[in-house]
Amino acid sequence: MGAHLILRVVAKLLIPLIFIFGFYVHFHAKYAPGGAFQAGVILAAAVIVYGLIYGMDAARKAVPPWAARVGMALGAFIFAAVGFVSLIFGENFLDYDVLHPDVEHARGQYLGIILVEIGVLLTVTTVIIAIFYAFAGRSPEITEEEW
């Protein structure tokens, strides 16, 4: 897609905004609709737009396939690890109250939700990027005539 100047310029403007919106959806989920699942797909969509406009090699440089591979497992691991931490401290699985001594103000719950949401964000983002790499890595480039 070497000649698509307008697409490149618009993408350059839009991709940072998509990232900011994704992080906003993630970190503002305490007050607004959204959460890690939604934020994850938005962040992954930004990477996919980057890959579509600037080519797969540029996307693989930005988010290497090994990072997608590790992120998938790491996110799920973080979520489960929070559960096992509360189990080790003698509470129920995923009972976040043990994570912080201030049970009165539910600081542990707050911390726990933030931690597991980071895990969800990581897994959802990297899984979608990995699926995109898997498909796009096999497809031939779209030739100009087909547009």
Binding site: P65, A68, R69, M72, G75, A76, A130, Y133, A134
Partner: peptide
């Protein structure tokens, strides 16, 4: 749900590879 998403990613990676290595 997170593990379902993870399983989906692993499934695609097993079938098609990650297209990067």
């Amino acid at each position: 749900e997170v593990f379902v998403v993870f399983a989906a990613g692993v499934g695609v990676a097993l079938l098609m590879g990650l297209g990067g290595g």
